[in-house]
Design a protein around this nucleic acid. Structure first.
Lengths: 200, 200
DNA sequence: GTTAGACTATATCAGTTCGATATATGTAGA
DNA sequence: TCTACATATATCGAACTGATATAGTCTAAC
């Protein structure tokens, strides 16, 4: 029995279907805007092949659903085999390292070589994106309305403890980021300006 | 002139060489443990081909350096063309979205389905990893000694303002994460236990 | 003393994943 | 009317990861 080293897209799809049935498109939304958006990623180009493979392996089944004024859907659902496999995977997987990747922070590393206006714009963009994320994350309030977003809610629609914990953590990280920027942006900009003045 | 949407490994390598000459192995270390470790990733499997390509394109040159008691190195260095290209890329690139990926948080999302001991172990592991990261990040104190880690330091060895800002942000994020865990772990574990009791 | 594991160093490659694109249809706004 | 955007699936080249191979050294354990 081999122990997985990281979560592949197949496993992520099984997890996404734990909460409710969904189409490939909806699964992507869970990773793009929904429940998993701030800590996992999966693109359509990997989700669709994964669902095909999972169907072949008997982990999921799908029902083709015709829609008025919309293209047809394939609504996927976990089989009991799929559910068992997913839970077994959770138990047997040594979770991979966290990986955070930020082009903006990489660029800011070279702030001294950049026009000060660009640096400022980058920081503002960074803050704006984190504000957006913070709003998206909140498991209580948002669910704007339509969201099918599935997963992690009990009969009453309340999010599960695990989900609340993870969402809270995400919000705390966003808050810390925004707070840091509030406290340090002006200082950095000023320092960069004085350095540039000295040089000329 | 096409506007890049994300930083590819070639660009990352140019950035890594902005601070000083380095071998492929050392560049990887910058992304693994060093300056860039908490917000960018690049593996050897992509770094070496990137350096080969950059050499062909005249962006970098290398000197083969024989070593006593060690395999030979190729020490890479930016050309002025490479330097110019990198700075132009910074100006012309629309930075890609931040992407954070965490297997542990994904797993914790399903805490209710997991043995409580596993949940607790996952949280502890998560905390431990962030403590490690926090130590690695600090640009002032650590630099244990040997670190060639290059980049972002002036003549006196002081880190550049941009680097200090980014490092500080990284530390703030780690701190917020650890703080959140300190404040919420026990509550979660307790809630999970009571839920399990109710079920049986 | 020798052996296993870790570190330095480069290189390659299969498999996975991303990002872009194609196709089809509908709605909303300019 | 035209553009942009949303729903929905599917495919594919390009990029990247992770594992593996090679090769030599150093150190700590046994």
């Amino acid at each position: 029995m081999d122990i997985k080293q990281t979560m592949d897209v197949r496993t992520l799809c099984l997890g996404a279907l734990m909460g409710s049935e969904a189409t490939g498109y909806e699964i992507r939304k869970m990773f793009e805007d929904g429940t998993f958006s701030h800590f996992q990623i999966a693109s359509l180009g990997s989700i669709y092949p994964a669902l095909t493979k999972l169907t072949q392996d008997g982990m999921v089944t799908f029902v083709e659903r015709e829609q008025e004024n919309r293209p047809d859907k394939k609504v996927y659902q976990l089989t009991s085999e799929g559910r068992r496999t997913f839970l077994r995977t959770l138990l047997q997987t040594r979770p991979g390292e966290d990986r955070y990747r930020s082009d903006i922070l990489f660029m800011l590393t070279f702030a001294e070589e950049l026009p000060v206006e660009l640096t400022e714009a980058l920081i503002d963009e960074f803050a704006a994106r984190h504000e957006m994320t913070q709003i998206q994350i909140d498991p209580e309030n948002p669910e704007k309305d339509n969201c099918p977003l599935a997963h992690g809610r009990d009969e009453n629609g309340a999010p599960s403890p695990g989900c609340r914990f993870v969402a809270g953590l995400g919000q705390a990280m966003c808050e810390a980021t925004l707070d840091f920027i509030r406290r340090n942006k002006d200082g950095l900009i000023e320092e960069l300006r004085t350095r540039k003045d000295k040089k000329t």
